[in-house]
Each structure stands twice: as C-alpha cells, then as structure tokens.
Design a protein around this nucleic acid. Structure first.
Length: 173
DNA sequence: GCCAACGTTGGC
DNA sequence: GCCAACGTTGGC
C-alpha cells in the first residue's frame, strides 16, 4: 500500500499515470465499452475503499488504463482506455433498486466515486494472464500478486510498456 | 465447482 | 481494539 503512495499524491507537471481496471466480461466486456456512445462509460459499482481512493485521488483525465477481463476464459488484458473524466459521485450508490446500492452513502457526502473511461485501443491480441506470468519483467506487477483482488490498481510505467508491446503483437523485449 | 485470499462486519 | 464469521473475488 505504501508502495503506491506516489500514485495518490500531487503529480509533476505533465505527468501521466497508468492504471488497470478489472471487469468480468459477462457483466461488462471490452466490446460493451466499444459499443457505448463515444466509446465511453462511467465506471460505477466500485465498492472497495482502496480502489475508490485510486480513482478519486490518483486518476486524472488523460491517464491511461489497461482493461482486464477477470473471471474469463482466459483472463486477459483486452486493450487501453483513457480516463475521460475525473472522479465524481457514483449515483448507483443512492439507488435502492440498484445492486450496488449503499444506504450509508448520502448525496451530501458520497462514499463512492467513479470516473469515466473511454476505449482507446483494442489490442491486436488479448494479453492473457499466462502471457503476463511468462514475462519475467512483470514479476512485480500488482495484478500478478498472489491473492490480489484490487479492481482498480496502479501500473508501473515499465510494466505498462511491456504489456502494451505484447498487446500490439510484437515481442516483449 | 472448489477454495485460497482478502475485506468487512459485529460481538465482546 | 481484537478477532471469528461471513461474503466476495477470481484463478484454476
């Protein structure tokens, strides 16, 4: 957690941060994102404080985000999105008919926040979890940590470059 | 379907 | 504040 502090604090001029979000394709797939108006959706339903903090305090418009299919066959990074809007209140927390309703989140003081994500580049080939695990230089990546469940997480720039290269069907090195 | 790992809840 | 119980995540 402390290792991620620099993803949460103030940023240098022109700094662009890199992230990864998970989505179960049966709930919301990369193709579903591409089908959205302007290829953009609000990233609602995040109900984990650490993930929320990354969206609220770490993400800014223009940051780049890997879109990962979890609980998929195979699990894989599908492409790159960009943050299209800074964090704002997640309205689904206020709706008692919504599965993500949270009675403790009030409009005057919202607990849960979301950003907007816009699809930017579908990878030439999905970068599967086995491909990621095969890459020694990705050994420290949060996604690959045993038991890692964070649905919104920072990505180191060096890791970012490797994943994108794999997705563009080149070689990692 | 199984189950390890994790976050949250609530009793005390 | 501790920690057991519980629900969820997500790979396999």
């Amino acid at each position: 957690v402390a290792a991620f502090a620099r993803f949460l604090g103030p940023r240098a001029a022109g700094e662009r941060r890199h992230w990864l979000v998970k989505s179960e394709p049966e709930a919301f797939s990369w193709s579903a994102l591409e089908a959205c108006p302007d290829r953009t959706t609000c990233w609602d339903g995040v109900r984990n404080f650490q993930a929320r903090n990354f969206m609220r305090d770490g993400m800014r418009r223009g940051d780049l985000v890997l879109f990962y299919h979890s609980n998929a066959e195979p699990p894989a990074v599908m492409g790159v999105c960009e943050v299209a809007r800074d964090a704002y209140p997640d309205h689904t927390a206020f709706d008692d008919a919504d599965p993500h309703f949270d009675a403790k989140s009030r409009r005057e003081e919202p607990t849960w926040m979301m950003v907007d994500l816009r699809a930017q580049e579908r990878f030439a080939r999905p970068v599967t979890l086995p491909m990621l695990r095969d890459e020694p230089a990705l050994a420290g990546m949060e996604l690959l940590r045993r038991g890692s469940r964070l649905s919104v997480q920072p990505v180191e720039a060096v890791h970012w470059e490797i994943v994108v290269r794999l997705g563009r069907a080149g070689t990692a090195r």
